[in-house]
């Protein structure tokens, strides 16, 4: 019993403690819970699944940044790929589905909104940058470009040897993941942009899928060790380097690319619902004319 508690504690203690991650995660939860209290019983209150998506998404991101999973990600290539699958795909996807900003805004104290959020988010520079990053051509290029960039063997090697570079890598993946999935499956309102057409979104999802398949397959089918830092710095536990690389390649290849299919299902469902309500609206208009 004692040793079990000890191993749980060892797992939960951050490997590299980051005040930024703690502050952002705890702050988001606090604002969200306050907002939920405000919204309870009202029409804006999200259902169980949206609330669950928010917490599962946020917890999984926190876990891969601030528990023993972070240590394992630094010393095992395939766990590193799993880390990026969560930071760049699954976690942000769930958060975007939960669309928590409206609720969080309800829970934001006025001083924080006036003092920090409004000046930062309404700043013309922020808006211009946001519009650029969310451009339907730029966003998929950035999404796949970042995956490719950090997987260039020499870039990857240095990222694994320097804590600063490692942090830049993980933050860039997380922020880009949030931006991309927000654009694809986020709420239709409050994006600060005209929502993208459903067809455009499907094309974007397809556009990010092909490069990921290519990169993942290249890694999984490569007959040489591409990422030497794991051998040089020591692996978390003994495993054949080739097996490690094969699994890592497969994670980049299949589940990461599959996220596009999951995203497309969500988009198609909304497309259908929208055209249904559009038709319903048109037919009710027709009734009025008669």
């Amino acid at each position: 019993m004692h040793s079990l508690l000890q191993s749980i504690a060892l797992f939960l203690i951050p490997w590299e403690f980051s005040p930024t991650v703690l502050l952002l995660c705890a702050g988001s939860v606090l604002l969200y819970v306050r907002g939920l209290r405000h919204a309870s019983g009202e029409a804006t209150s999200p259902g169980f699944w949206r609330i669950a998506a928010f917490f599962v998404g946020l917890t999984s991101i926190y876990a891969f940044l601030q528990t023993h999973l972070d240590y394992l990600s630094q010393h095992m290539f395939w766990i590193h790929r799993l880390q990026h699958l969560v930071l760049h795909h699954a976690g942000p996807f769930l958060i975007a589905l939960a669309a928590p900003l409206e609720i969080m805004a309800l829970g934001t104290p006025r001083w924080l909104r006036r003092g920090l959020f409004a000046p930062v988010f309404n700043n013309p520079l922020t808006l211009r940058l946001y519009r650029l990053l969310q451009h339907p051509v730029v966003a998929p290029l950035l999404f796949t470009g970042l995956i490719g960039f950090w997987l260039i063997p020499s870039v990857h090697f240095k990222a694994m040897l320097s804590l600063a570079r490692y942090d830049v890598m993980n933050w860039s993946m997380l922020i880009d993941g949030l931006l991309f999935w927000w654009l694809i499956v986020g709420p239709e309102k409050h994006t600060g942009l005209k929502p993208l057409g459903y067809g455009t979104r499907i094309i974007m999802l397809w556009a990010i899928m092909l490069p990921q398949i290519a990169i993942g397959a290249y890694i999984a089918l490569s007959s040489t060790i591409l990422y030497t830092s794991y051998s040089v710095c020591g692996r978390a536990w003994p495993i054949a380097p080739m097996t490690d690389q094969d699994i890592g390649g497969l994670i980049t290849w299949i589940p990461a690319a599959m996220m596009s299919a999951v995203g497309a299902l969500v988009v198609l469902r909304r497309w259908r619902n929208d055209s249904h309500s559009e038709r319903a609206r048109q037919s009710s208009l027709g009734m009025e004319v008669q």
């Binding site: 630094q74 010393h75 694994m160 040897l161 040089v232 020591g234 978390a236 536990w237 003994p238």
Partner: peptide, 19 residues
């Protein structure tokens, strides 16, 4: 940015380490 681990001792108390 490196790691190490000690393996389980065998019957003679010998063990290997990864580093």
């Amino acid at each position: 940015r490196v790691t190490y681990s000690l393996g389980k001792p065998d019957a003679h108390g010998n063990y290997e380490a990864t580093h």
